[in-house]
Design a protein around this nucleic acid. Structure first.
Lengths: 332, 332
DNA sequence: TAAGGTGATGTAATCGATTTCATGGAGGAC
DNA sequence: GTCCTCCATGAAATCGATTACATCACCTTA
C-alpha cells in the first residue's frame, strides 16, 4: 500500500507537508494542498491509522464490552453507543463477554492492548482483579447498565424502582396477590437492584414476599424457563411471574406454553425490559421499558468527558411501565 | 504505561530479549524468561498492539460490516463471526452500515485505515466505487449473506430456493392461491434471489404471479408495514403474504394487528428468517430458518484462508422451512 | 536599503514494538 | 590446548505516521 513517503514523492513535497495536508494544518498553500490531494487519490492512499496512533498515543477508538450479544437489550445499547461515538468521530470495538467473567477479562486485556482511548463496560461479575487494576490505573472507564459498588467509576444505568412499584400496584389492582420475581444474578447490580425494588414495592403494597417466590437466574433464556418450571411446580404456584429481563421472559413464555397454560388466566406475566415483539405475543406482554439507546449515548458522552479530562457525573434514567394485557384480572 | 524498554531495564536484559519472551522464541533460557515475566507483572506491562502491528504489518483483527445492527439476523451472524474469530485468535471490529451505502463506505475506509487483516462485508448496495477498488487491490475480502454479481469475491450465503418452494407448496396445500411476496430491495442479491425463487416456485406450482403482489421493501420494519397496508387495500387483497425477512414480517404483523385482522383466517403470514419469538406470536409464525451463526463461522474460515493466501471456495448453505400455524387453511 | 517578521516547507527525532545481524562465551572434538 | 560450533543475548534498523525546530524566501517598515 502507498505510504506517506510515496505521496510526498509523487507530489514533489516532503512527508511533513503531506502530513500537514492530512491534518488540515493552516500553513499549506492551496496549490500545494491540491497537488498533495491529487497524489493521494492517484496512489489510492489511505493513511495508516496504526502508525498515526503510535505517534499520537490516541486511537480514536472506544471499547465496549457487553454482557450478551444475543440479548436485544445489549444490541440496542450498542446501537446507541455506536451512534454517539460515530458522531464524535470515534470507532467502537465491541466485545461480547457472553456473561462470563473470563471473557470479559479477555476483552479488557485485548482492548487495553489495542490502546483504546476509553472503555465502556457492562460488568459481568462483581469485580475481577483485572477490572480492579484497570480502575487504579485511572484509564478512562465508564460502567454501563450495571455498576460495581465500592469502585469510584462513573456509570450510566436505568432506574426501575418507580416503574416496578407501578407494576406491583397494577398487579395488585388486577387481583393478583401471589407474585413471584425471577430476577438476574445477585452478583450483578441490576439483579440486586431490581430484587430490592420488587421487595420494597411488595412490602409497600402490603403484599407478602415469599422466599420461594424469589429466584435468581442469569438473565438468559434457559434460567427463565427453569425458574418458571420450578415456580409452577410449587404446591401453591404464584398467580403472576415478573421476569428480570427480556430473555428470561422468553424462557418463561416457552415453559408456560409447553405446559399448555394460558396467560393471564393461569398465570400472569410481566417483563423488565421491553422488546419490539412483545406486542405480538398472545396476549401482549406488560413490560418495563428502559431508555436503552439513550443509555448508550449518555455513556459515550460521559466517557468522552473522562477522555478529555473533564469530570463525569453518573446518570440514572427512569424506566417506564408499559401496561399491556398479560397481567389482566383472572378470567377477565 | 510501561513500555518494553521499562521491562527490559527492570529485568536487566535488552528489549530484544523481552520481545523474544513475548513471542515465545525458543532461544531464551528459563531463568531469563522468568526474570522477564516477573518484571512484566511487576510493571503491569501490557504489550502495545499498535506498535506491534506497525512493525509486523498484521493486526490480528478482522472487520465485519453488517447491514443493520438492530436486525437479529445480523446480530446472530455477528455472533458466529465473533466465535470463530476468537477461536483463531482474532479480534473483530463490527461496523453497522444501517443499510446505507455511505455508511458502508465509511466503515470500509475506517477499517482499511486501521489495517484490518481481512474484511467481511454484507454489501448494502449493488456496488460502490470504493468496494470496486477494494476488490482490485486484492485485499482479503469475503461477502457474507449478500453477494455482488460480477465481482470475483468469495461469498457465504444461505440458499433458500428449496425452502421457498416448500413454503409455496405448503400454502397451496392449505388452500391459498393469491400469494404476495414482500421482498427486500432489488439492489441486494438476497432481495433478488428470494424473489426469483418465489416466482419460480409459484410458476412451478401452477399459481399465478401477479405483479401487484410483488413488492420490494428495504428489509426493515417500516417497509414491511407499508407494503402490507398497500396489499390489504387492494380491491382483491392476497390471501397470504410472505415477507422477505424478519423485520418486514414484524412490520406486517403490526399492520395486520392494527387493522384488527386475524391470522391466518383473514390473511396468512410467512417469513423468510426465523427468530426466537415467532413461536410466541398468535398464531406461531411459519418461517424459513437460515443457518445464521454457521454462515458467520464459515465466512471467517473462508476469510482466514484468503489471509493465509490459500484459495477460498464460496459456500451456500440450505435454509429450512419451519411450518407453524400462521399459514393454516382458512377457517381451520 | 537593511532589519525584522511572517509564512511555507523541509529535516530529523520520535512513538514501541520486531527482527536481522553481530558478538561473546561455553562446550565438544581432535 | 586449540579450534569450531552453537546458543543466548544485545545493538541497531525498521514500520509509517507526527511534530519540534531549522531554513529560506518574501514582504513590510523605518
Amino acid at each position: 500500500m502507498a505510504r506517506i513517503k510515496d505521496v510526498a514523492a509523487h507530489a514533489g513535497v516532503s512527508v511533513a507537508t503531506v502530513s500537514r495536508v492530512l491534518n488540515d494544518h493552516p500553513s499549506v498553500t492551496p496549490e500545494t494542498r491540491d497537488r498533495v490531494y491529487a497524489a493521494m487519490s492517484a496512489l489510492r492512499y489511505v493513511p495508516n491509522a496504526v502508525a498515526r496512533s503510535l505517534r499520537t498515543e490516541a486511537t480514536r477508538t472506544l471499547g465496549l464490552i457487553i454482557g450478551d450479544i444475543l440479548n436485544p437489550f445489549f444490541t440496542e445499547l450498542a446501537r446507541g453507543v455506536e451512534d454517539e461515538a460515530r458522531r464524535a468521530g470515534y470507532t467502537v470495538i465491541i466485545g461480547n463477554a457472553d456473561e462470563r467473567a473470563e471473557e470479559q477479562d479477555h476483552y479488557v486485556r485485548t482492548l487495553v492492548g489495542q490502546r483504546v482511548d476509553g472503555l465502556l463496560i457492562c460488568p459481568t461479575a462483581e469485580v475481577t482483579p483485572l477490572v480492579q487494576e484497570l480502575v487504579s490505573t485511572a484509564r478512562p472507564l465508564v460502567f454501563l447498565d450495571r455498576t460495581i459498588s465500592g469502585l469510584d467509576v462513573p456509570f450510566v444505568r436505568a432506574d426501575g424502582a418507580r416503574a416496578i412499584a407501578g407494576l406491583v400496584a397494577h398487579l395488585k389492582e388486577m387481583g393478583h396477590r401471589r407474585i413471584a420475581f425471577a430476577s438476574g444474578p445477585a452478583t450483578l447490580s441490576t439483579g440486586r437492584e431490581r430484587t430490592d425494588a420488587f421487595v420494597a414495592a411488595m412490602t409497600g403494597a402490603g403484599l407478602e414476599v415469599r422466599p420461594d417466590y424469589l429466584a435468581a437466574g442469569d438473565f438468559r433464556e434457559g434460567s427463565g424457563r427453569a425458574i418458571t418450571a420450578r415456580l409452577l411446580d410449587l404446591t401453591e404456584p404464584p398467580e403472576a411471574i415478573f421476569f428480570g429481563d427480556n430473555l428470561m421472559t422468553l424462557g418463561g413464555l416457552d415453559e408456560i406454553r409447553a405446559r399448555g397454560l394460558r396467560i393471564p388466566d393461569d398465570v400472569a406475566v410481566a417483563s423488565f425490559d421491553d422488546v419490539t415483539w412483545f406486542v405480538h405475543v398472545d396476549p401482549p406482554i406488560t413490560a418495563i421499558a428502559q431508555p436503552t439507546a439513550e443509555l448508550g449515548r449518555r455513556a459515550v458522552r460521559l466517557l468522552l468527558d473522562r477522555v478529555a479530562g473533564r469530570p463525569a457525573e453518573s446518570v440514572a434514567l427512569p424506566a417506564e411501565l408499559v401496561i399491556r394485557r398479560s397481567c389482566e384480572r383472572k378470567g377477565a
